[in-house]
Structure formats: structure tokens, C-alpha cells
Design a protein around this nucleic acid. Structure first.
Lengths: 141, 141
DNA sequence: CCTTGACTTCGAGTGCACTCAAACCTCTAG
DNA sequence: CTAGAGGTTTGAGTGCACTCGAAGTCAAGG
């Protein structure tokens, strides 16, 4: 954890790299990698350790969500660069997010098709083709 | 296309690799790769070209759906091997499909979270939070 | 016959996103 | 003081799933 060295008695809400990564479901390696390539900036404690404030956590969370929905590192880099360039870049950022939304919707559709195929197989293997709840063979789940 | 050399006049419903791949949204390279690693078997015309019958198309379609929903090549190989081993392997196949279903459901949940985050950004950049069609700023789609 | 374009094989190459190794530092507990 | 857990840096390595290149074959059109 970040140092307990509170000179003041204010409870500062910061997290260590492992705490953040546990919450977000990524490894510390990945978080360091993202920082290395410029996707986020993280402060340091006096001893050089990363200190994640709310802003850094939120940014990392955003990065994880975009990655998990198929945005590539290069597009994410582009987006972050636009953010750093200021307000004038909102139109392009908006476009990136709209493209991303479209991709996510398509991915969900694909997954739903795959889910249908998978449930069909489960029905075939697990019991009668029209039976998905009280199959004669499989009886758990 | 497969040869028009019909000795009989029966309209044989087979497809060339490019026709199949166009329908399924993959490249011919990928289909050949899947065949090479044993995920499907495809017949050949007298001149050595791949001839996809309904069975081969269905198999490839299944492979594509499983891949698109995150099943790895190695697990897909395992599954196909089980199918080739016959009926006695249905319990393990069932388990693989149940695991797959679970993964798909989790992926859909993740994507829905990402979609929420994305739509939030769109609302922030694009104007009013409840406005998705007639944005006041962005005007070149 | 000749060209064109889609197909064949095989091995090798590519891109992406991590993932790890090594050597070092620092804090806390015993 | 010592051990051990967890942190730091850099550059290099890994795994996955394609993706491509090269050289050749084949069928149809002009």
C-alpha cells in the first residue's frame, strides 16, 4: 500500500498498483505497460511507488473497458492524445466513441448468435432438442 | 466455383472456398488454416480445389462462431477431436459447451458495461445526455 | 495459344498485447 | 538485523491466430 506516513490526519484515498489491478481485473504488468506507452499518468510516492488517485483509477478503468470491448491500443492512444490536446478535439473524440459504440453493438450481436449456437449444442448433448430446463441426462444447471 | 462438369443433371449444392468465406466473413487463408490444423475436412474437386458441401459449411460456420466468442484454437481442437471419437464423448463435449456458454454470458456483460461507458462519453461530447440523433456540434457523421 | 484470375501447397513472417526476467529498492514484522 | 512481500526499471521474450509469399496448377474467354 501507499505509505501510512500521514503528516496530516486527512484520510487520503489512494491505492497501490496491486489494489487497483485487483479491482479492475488486470495485472500490474498491464497497468505499468499502459503507463509506459502513455495511456495514463500515475503519481509517485516519495519512495518512487505508483500512487493511484481517483483520477488515475477512473482513467485506468476506462482504458480497461475500451480494451475489453475491442478498441485497439493504437486507437486508444489516439483518443488519449486528443484528450490531452484539449477541448477543441471533442468532435473527433465523439466520432471515435460513436465508432466504438457501433463495434460494441455488433460484438454483442455476434455473441448472441454464438450463444444461440452454443445453447443448441447443449440442448442436443444434454437432453431433448426442445428441452433446456429438465434434461433427462444432465441434471445440474 | 466448383466445376460445372455435371455427368448427371442434379444441381449439386457445393460452394468454392471464396463463396463460403464471403458468406461467413472470414478470409480463405483462415479457412485453409483451419483445415490444415484439423478443425474441418473439405472435399476436393478432380482438379484439387476445395469443394464445400453443406456439412463442411456448417462445420466452418460453427468454428467461426466459437472463435468469435472467444474459444481458443486449442479448445476447439479438443472439441473437434471429441466429436471424431464418437458418441461416448458427449459428456465432455457438453461440459465444454457449458463453459463456453458461461464465458459468452460474461463477455456480453462486459460489453454492456463498456457500452454504458461509451454512451456516457457520447452524451458528454455530443450534447444533451438524452440526445443521440440530432447532435448540435458534430455535423460530419 | 495465351492471358487472366482464382485456386493449390508449404513454410515462414507478422502484429498485437501483453508478459516476463533480472537486478535493484523499501517497508514492515519478528 | 534479517527475511520477505511487494514495489521499481529496462529490454527482451512469448503466445496466439492468423497472414503472407512464392511457385505452381487449372478452367474459361478471346
Amino acid at each position: 500500500m501507499p505509505p501510512t506516513t500521514d503528516s496530516a490526519s486527512i484520510p487520503i484515498e489512494t491505492l497501490s498498483i496491486s489494489e487497483v489491478c485487483n479491482r479492475l481485473g488486470i495485472t500490474a504488468h498491464t497497468a505499468r505497460y499502459y503507463e509506459r506507452i502513455g495511456l495514463l499518468h500515475v503519481g509517485r510516492s516519495p519512495s518512487g511507488r505508483r500512487v493511484f488517485d481517483q483520477r488515475a483509477v477512473d482513467r485506468l478503468d476506462f482504458l480497461v473497458r475500451m480494451r475489453s470491448s475491442g478498441m485497439g491500443i493504437s486507437e486508444l492512444t489516439r483518443y488519449v492524445d486528443l484528450v490531452n490536446q484539449g477541448e477543441s478535439t471533442t468532435p473527433e473524440r465523439l466520432q471515435i466513441m460513436r465508432d466504438q459504440r457501433q463495434r460494441i453493438i455488433e460484438q454483442i450481436r455476434d455473441l448472441e448468435r454464438a450463444l444461440t449456437a452454443t445453447e443448441y449444442k447443449i440442448a442436443v448433448y444434454g437432453g431433448a432438442p426442445d428441452d433446456t430446463s429438465h434434461s433427462p441426462k444432465g441434471h445440474h444447471s
